[in-house]
């Protein structure tokens, strides 16, 4: 089955992973900007990173027939440095016309601090000003519920935000309901230990339906599995779910969400 991974950090993966993804049916991916495992020291560090996301990775993906899209921001972890964050936010428009940029992301919260919330709001302002879609990171573990509710508060307080153009990622059992109820898209990240398993993701589909719902692998530099979406497909099939339901979640929903971005003109293969 053709599928799209809407959240995978390919800068952290070796080229062999692109080949494996292609063999498993992956036809397109989107890669949000994230934390590199260390705090970068200057706006030029981010400028080089955005060149990697808009120029290098699309070429690497294309060798295996995979379309590569991306989202730009300074992530929540580095957002604790408000001065650097403002420099990065001011620089982002240099890249918004790149052909693979879908919007602003993954913005969000990490430890739910005032600085993180301040930078999140300034990213939202950037997205509204430039009519960009938004991809949102929610915190991990004990911070997830509080942080997700804070993020929803900030989004819902701004009437300019088109909720249909916002994807709130890393939802789990205690956060998926509030996200979907508020009219946003929700992403379930299949990740060992700290996020969600394919079985629990399938449970949530059975309880919440398939509207505005996606699954992704994150596939970053931590312990993660870039082929987690095919694991979800396998889990759904083993439970007897229809091919049309599975395809909606792993292919049609990401496509519907991405199509709202100005630069997304990708054509599915015949």
């Amino acid at each position: 089955m053709d599928y799209i991974d809407p959240h995978i950090h390919m800068v952290s993966r070796i080229t062999d992973d692109y080949e494996t993804l292609a063999r498993m049916g992956c036809v397109a991916i989107s890669e949000p900007a994230f934390w590199a495992g260390f705090d970068r020291g200057s706006v030029d560090g981010f400028r080089d990173y955005f060149r990697q996301l808009t120029q290098v990775e699309p070429r690497r993906a294309a060798q295996y027939g995979i379309a590569h899209f991306t989202w730009l921001c300074i992530n929540a972890k580095e957002a604790e440095n408000v001065t650097l964050s403002r420099e990065v936010i001011a620089m982002i428009p240099e890249f918004l016309d790149a052909p693979n940029v879908l919007g602003i992301g993954e913005i969000g919260l990490n430890k739910n601090t005032k600085n993180e919330a301040t930078v999140f709001l300034e990213h939202l302002e950037l997205a509204v000003t430039h009519r960009q879609s938004v991809l949102i990171h929610t915190p991990h573990l004990e911070d997830k519920y509080q942080g997700t509710r804070m993020i929803l508060d900030m989004l819902c307080d701004d009437s300019r935000i088109d909720r249909g153009r916002v994807l709130v990622d890393h939802v789990e059992e205690h956060t998926i309901g509030p996200v979907l109820d508020a009219g946003f898209w929700a992403g379930m990240t299949l990740y060992p230990v700290t996020k969600c398993t394919p079985a629990r993701a399938a449970d949530m589909v059975e309880q919440f339906g398939s509207e505005r719902l996606m699954v992704n692998s994150a596939g970053d530099w931590g312990p993660s599995k870039p082929t987690a979406v095919p694991d979800f497909i396998f889990e759904m099939r083993s439970r007897g779910h229809s091919e049309s339901l599975i395809r909606k979640i792993v292919y049609e929903n990401p496509l519907e969400f991405f199509r709202q971005s100005e630069h997304f003109d990708w054509q599915p293969r015949a």
């Binding site: 739910n112 005032k114 919330a117 301040t118 709001l121 573990l141 004990e142 911070d143 997830k144 519920y145 509080q146 509710r149 804070m150 508060d153 789990e172 059992e173 205690h174």
Partner: peptide, 18 residues
């Protein structure tokens, strides 16, 4: 999940002055 989660305070914005 709720057992392992921090409490959410709806008045967080005024507490943080945001």
């Amino acid at each position: 999940q709720t057992i392992f989660s921090r409490r959410y305070d709806p008045s967080w914005r005024s507490a943080m002055n945001i």
